[in-house]
Amino acid sequence: MRQDFRIVELFLQYALQGLKLGSIYALIALGYTMVYGVLRLINFAHGDVFMLGAMLSIYFARWTKLGAHPSWISLVAIMAMAMVACGLIGGVIERVAYRPLRNAPRLSLLITAIGVSLFIEYAGQLSQVFGATPQVFPSLVGNHQWTIAGKLTISTVEALVFVVAVLLMLVLHGIVHHTKLGLAMRAVSFNFQAASLMGVNVNRVISFTFVLGSALAGAAGVLYGLSYHSVDPLCGFMPGIKAFVAAVLGGIGSIPGALLGGFLLGEAETLTAGYISSTYKDAIAFVILIVVLLVKPSGLLGKRVVEKV
């Protein structure tokens, strides 16, 4: 009887961890899904923008000295700064590296995206920039452990990550479905040319999409830092790729899909790490990706697209 209890307890504890990881994936995945929606581009650099969100927050906290005074205000302020900074960076990347290739083959765009990603990672590792060694992320907010239902514990950060992810997703959903710009985004993702003929300023919409997606990645970066405490210039690559897997799993182009995919992937990874082996944790995402691509390429919540010939 006690044994059964412990098994359930352990499972729930893993599941909570998965929810935290999944929330971060979901936030990153939102950016992938939006950019893929309008440009049909896997923005490889997106994971690195996420890393910049975490990394820059460390510097912001240092400069503003907010890191020394953990409070909800510090958290909100730093997160706002990270989101603005990442939004700007995302906008600049789009303007400088992607826009000139608007009419180029998609492969050129993909290679450029890989280039931008490498550039951020390796320029970041230079000692003149961030340096290659991991840096400690300040605890911006008091982290309290609550015990719920027996031995099950949940921390402030865990709850925070989940709540922020869902909140931001709701905001995004509101923007996409209830504003003019959101309408334009949907139009562009439906048909690039037609939207431009209908008087939609495609360039502006694409810029906005990048800014929005990158801001979310910035927020995810802060949450990542709070959860895992250590940040280095390469820490965005894998989460970035996995968040893309999450976006594909949920159905690329679908906002609720990104959230669902993120949570599912987070759970899958934590449970693999918990029950099988933590070294196989990184493989599970790719197994999921390949299975999804083979069985249901449109993802769980995505629409099937007929390819026009």
Binding site: A97, I111, T112, G115, V116, L118, Y122, A123
Partner: peptide, 8 residues
């Protein structure tokens, strides 16, 4: 990485 971007 810069070469990649510039070449593209």
């Amino acid at each position: 990485s810069l070469l990649l971007i510039i070449v593209m």
